[in-house]
Amino acid sequence: MDKQLIISIGREFGSGGHEIAEMLAKKFDLNLYDHNILEEIAAEKNVEATHIGKYDEVPRNLIFSRKVRGYSNSMEENVANMQFDYLQDKAAKGESFVVVGRCSETILKPYEGMISMFILGDWEHKVERVMRLYNLSHGEAEVYINRQDKKRKNYHNYYCKGKWGDSRNYDISINSSKLGEEMTAEMLADYIMKRQNMH
């Protein structure tokens, strides 16, 4: 592939956004970056990945951390910045990849080859999916989805001006419940190809 292609995928919990990201990565033969970024960062810094893994995509705790002269001792914030640096570095080197979450639609905005999308889903559809995948009851799945989405939203909105899930913030927003994950991915692939052919 000559032109750089960065597919940034934001997603609601349970919408199948990650699965769609995997399909797109396979279709375009690209690396997929998600929580695996931390493993690479940990290896680079010679530390255990589990050490920093628990701070992945978690909002900063305002009471238990402070900022002094731009230095924050919030591990969540440091892990987030490490990931932003990592992604920016990959993008600056001209690499094409698919990235899930991590404020990528904002931090990689300057790159022309970046296509941002947000995957959402119908509530019942998401609950049913989460119940199946995580073996939870209906009530548990609802609580779990709410908690995860709240975390993602707070995380995102702390670092970015544009709001999480706000359609104005992404090139395309799509409800995966209508077509199912596979057909949604196909439709998005079609959109990506059309975008690429434009340039």
Partner: peptide, 24 residues
Amino acid sequence: TPIGASANVVGTAVAAKSGHPIGW
């Protein structure tokens, strides 16, 4: 505590940046 003085914040921030989180 990690937030009690500026030196603590900066010290733990430098450690965190190098991949060595120091929790509460």
